[in-house]
Design a protein around this nucleic acid. Structure first.
Length: 806
RNA sequence: GCCGGUGUGGUGGAAUGGUAGACACGGCGGACUUAAAAUCCUCUGAUGCUUGCGUCGUGCCGGUUCGAGUCCGGCCACCGGCACCA
């Protein structure tokens, strides 16, 4: 019988379309639930990339096995369809983004169906559907009402050539991703989300979830918690300034102060600063610089002394000069830093350049050459008054205690995490459902007016002045205030792409609900997501954002769990042949359609899993695909080779049970490559020993999650479908008998003085004495032992014996 | 600079501290064929000789251990992320 994969796959996909074996049933209490989730794709014009099938196939296999194990499985799919590439394509080709999106989704859908994934298509969501984004807008309004959304003036990325605002992701190495022109910072009023309010909980609750460790580490680092102290310094002009430091112990070594050029206090001091012109020029220069110039290129310290301003060091009582310098960031701490050049390299560079005193307060380095930043905290304090002789470890709390007692400071925790810039001056995003009234200020749209639908516009190109294309729609912009009925204007910015994806997994639970984002029953039943797999690139974006939204929804009683995802895993990238990134310019992009056409979807699925460790990057090889196809051919041919016996044959019993055990364990650990290897080993044995119909039946059940089309065809051909009245995928997952995985005899390694010299075959679980006797009886061992004495033996049961001789 | 990760045959990759290289690609040889493809079977880390055995071998240098790809210390290289966060 020939393995005609094209016909087979077409046939079974039609059957599944018709019978919906993947439908999830909300509220089915007869079975445990399992919610498996993959990151829904952005439906780009290029169609499915070979990178997509890797995570999709892995979780498809996991969820198929869960179904066979009796779970009520939710494995949904949808499309994260708002976003710039679609908008740019629409602008270029003069097609409405909604049409582009519709076409792309249709293309993606057919590609995903072509690969035979067990998605519950009836629950498919599309973030650009007003029925969906109604609830994205609703969540935003709840955040607004709870004070988590606010408007603030923020510097944004501005492309000097395109004359438009760019998202951070569009700025690559300081230039515009599209045109390569310089990107500068421009102040704009933006909607912000107060994610920083959740910083501590976003760290703490990582302890309660099962994420792979590198995801947790990356999130913790990104949130960047640090503990330190705020210390207040008195100024010579009657006020005071506060700094944040993690090194309170170095206060005696503070020889100057630095303030950020954006700091509002500078303006307050305008009259007291004698060289204001110079300071103002520096401020302007700093504002003009791009982040790139300010950061990466220009580590050279610059600054201007504030002539007329001095502050008193509260422990040395010396008067210190104050500088403005752009190495101090306004967004972190207090925007003012105490300069400790002896023990901070940046301060050392600044002090060296400006000829400021460098004082050693921690012994152990050579501060004439560079700042001494102790690697451990056991270094000893010097030149530090009451701290002298203490270690850094002792001095930090001692100084904190001191400043608190003196009323000049307090303990303080800081985070690197910033609030989330939530507006985009773009067309293809969710409209922000707020209006600005001259009398009432910002007023939320009443909830019964949601969704606020994107209006049809003639041109969705960004405007010259950086306003959203929606701002040109005066009919839409001008509206009445829901509060006072007076004239008002709509917000014309839209939400970023991350909005719709921050809660989509909730919508899958109840995707057609028009009363709530999802029913209480559905949320209670399906929450949390049991297993979420996605890319590492989303760790500090989507994954963090959606945890934040979910915690907010938990706080207002919408969702039943604190955390959205119980488990998170991450896949490695698929690289091109030779280990390079796949890209159009390199011409090494693999299109899944081509692989499916040539080898079939089952081979594609199997191969993408076999190719290597799921978590690691692997390079694609067109040559190697043949091996996976060859394996499926060999499986398919077993139908004709097998004897009629429907039991597992005695000669294959051991290998079959071993393989069931291995595949069962490996799927749960996402080690699909070794699961497949063990099935290959089993099939090789079938070829060597012959096999029964029962043996092939076991193979079918194990292989079903990997190669569902071919397995159903074999299952039907061999009469199991008729006999069981079920498809293979609906059968219970096979169980193994531990006793049957054990062979009667074992080959054991024999080492002499730790080196492998021979092997012996002994009955399984032999006593040590039996093994030792057998080893000593071995011809090679006898030769080596001639004239020597056996001083020690080490026996590792069923594996190895090591004879130590002298 | 900081935080992760990786380094194993010609190639992709396997190995709870216990026979390194499972499984696969590629290659050699054989069977089948007029022939080729496909399929099936054998062999395939390097090296030496007497073909049975020896020696070497998991980025480099040390250590722990009866035994190290695996653990520890110190390096090197590459990949990813963050980066003037006080």
């Amino acid at each position: 019988m020939k393995y005609d994969f094209t016909a087979i796959e077409k046939k079974w996909q039609a059957i599944w379309e018709e019978t919906k074996p993947y439908a999830a049933v909300t509220g089915d209490t007869t079975r445990p639930k399992f919610y498996g989730l993959i990151e829904f794709p952005y439906p780009s014009g290029q169609g499915l990339h070979v990178g997509h099938p890797r995570p999709f196939t892995a979780l498809d296999i996991v969820t198929r096995k869960k179904r066979m194990e009796g779970y009520n499985v939710l494995f949904p799919i949808g499309f994260d369809a708002f976003g710039l590439p679609t908008e740019n394509y629409a602008i270029k080709n003069h097609i409405h983004p909604a049409i582009v999106t519709k076409n792309n989704i249709a293309n993606f859908t057919s590609q995903l169906k072509m690969l035979g994934y067990g998605f519950d298509w009836d629950r498919c969501v599309d973030t650009t559907d007003p029925k969906y984004y109604k609830w994205t807008q609703w969540i935003f309004l709840q955040m607004y009402k709870h004070g988590l959304a606010y408007k603030a003036t923020m510097p944004v990325n501005w492309c000097t050539s395109c004359k438009c605002v760019l998202a951070n992701e569009e700025v690559v190495d300081g230039v515009c991703e599209r045109c390569g022109s310089e990107v500068v910072r421009k102040e704009k009023s933006q909607w912000m989300l107060r994610i920083t309010k959740y910083a501590q909980r976003l760290i703490d609750d990582l302890d309660d979830v099962d994420y792979i460790e590198r995801v947790k580490i990356q999130q913790r680092n990104w949130i960047g918690r640090s503990t330190g102290a705020e210390v207040t310094f008195k100024t010579n002009i009657g006020g005071e300034v506060t700094v944040y430091t993690t090194r309170a112990d170095t206060l005696f070594g503070t020889t100057y102060m630095v303030i950020s050029p954006e700091h509002p206090m500078l303006n307050e001091w305008k009259d007291k600063i004698k060289n204001w012109d110079e300071v103002e020029a520096y401020q302007k220069e700093a504002a003009r610089k791009s982040d790139f110039e300010r950061g990466e290129l220009n580590k050279d310290k610059t600054g201007v002394r504030l002539d007329g301003i001095e502050v008193e060091n509260p422990v040395t009582h010396k008067m210190l000069p104050m500088f403005v310098s752009d190495y101090v960031l306004m967004g972190y701490g207090t925007g003012i830093v105490m300069g400790v050049p002896g023990h901070d390299q940046r301060d050392w560079e600044f002090a060296t350049k400006f000829g400021l005193p460098i004082v050693e307060v921690v012994a152990g380095g050579d501060i004439t050459k560079e700042a001494f930043v102790a690697k451990d905290d056991s270094a000893v304090m010097v030149n530090s008054g009451f701290l002298n002789g203490m270690t850094v470890k002792e001095a930090i709390p001692a100084m904190k205690k001191y400043v608190v007692e003196q009323g000049i400071g307090k303990e303080k925790v800081n985070y690197k995490l910033r609030d989330w810039v939530f507006s985009r001056q773009r067309y293809w995003g969710e409209p922000i459902p707020l209006v600005n009234c001259e009398k009432c200020g910002w007023v939320p749209l009443p909830e019964d007016q949601l969704p606020l639908v994107l209006p049809q516009v003639d041109s969705y190109e960004p405007t010259d002045d950086g306003e959203s294309p929606l701002s040109k729609m005066t009919d839409w912009v001008n509206t009445t205030c829901p509060c006072c009925g007076g004239p008002a204007k709509r917000e014309t910015d839209t939400m970023p792409q991350w909005a719709g994806s921050s809660w989509y997994f909730l919508r899958y639970m109840d995707p057609h609900n028009d009363k709530e984002l999802a029913s209480k029953e559905a949320l209670e039943y399906w929450s949390p997501v049991d297993w979420y797999n996605g890319g590492m690139e989303h760790t500090t974006l989507h994954l963090l954002y959606s945890r934040f939204w979910h915690k907010f929804l938990y706080d207002i009683g919408v969702v039943p769990t604190k955390e959205p995802y119980a488990k998170r895993t991450s896949h490695g990238m698929i690289l091109g042949e030779g280990g390079e990134k796949m890209s159009k310019s390199r011409g090494n992009v693999v299109n899944p359609n081509d692989i499916v056409a040539q080898y079939g979807a089952d081979t594609m699925r199997l191969h993408i899993m076999f190719i290597g460790d799921f978590e690691k990057a692997v390079s694609w090889s067109n040559e190697a695909v043949k091996g996976s196809k060859r394996f499926l051919d060999r499986c398919f041919n077993l139908q004709d080779m097998a004897t009629d016996d429907e039991n597992i044959s005695a000669k294959n019993e051991s290998i079959v049970h071993k393989t069931i055990k291995k595949v069962t364990q490996d799927i749960d650990e996402l080690k699909m490559n070794t699961a497949i290897a063990s099935m290959m080993t089993m099939v090789n044995e079938f070829y060597a020993n012959g096999c029964s119909k029962g043996d092939v039946r076991a193979l079918c059940l194990l292989l079903s999650p990997f190669a569902p089309h071919m397995v159903e065809e074999m299952w039907e051909n061999m009469g199991f479908a008729a006999k069981e009245g079920k498809m293979a995928m609906q059968m219970p997952w096979p169980e193994y008998d531990e006793a049957k995985t054990v062979d009667a005899t074992r080959e054991m390694a024999v080492q002499v003085n730790g080196k492998l010299k021979s092997t012996i075959t002994v009955p399984s679980d032999s006593e040590d004495s039996v093994v030792i006797d057998a080893a000593c009886a071995d011809e090679k061992v006898k030769r080596l032992m001639e004239g020597k004495q056996l001083v020690k033996t080490i026996v590792v049961k069923n594996k190895l014996i090591n004879l130590i001789i002298k």
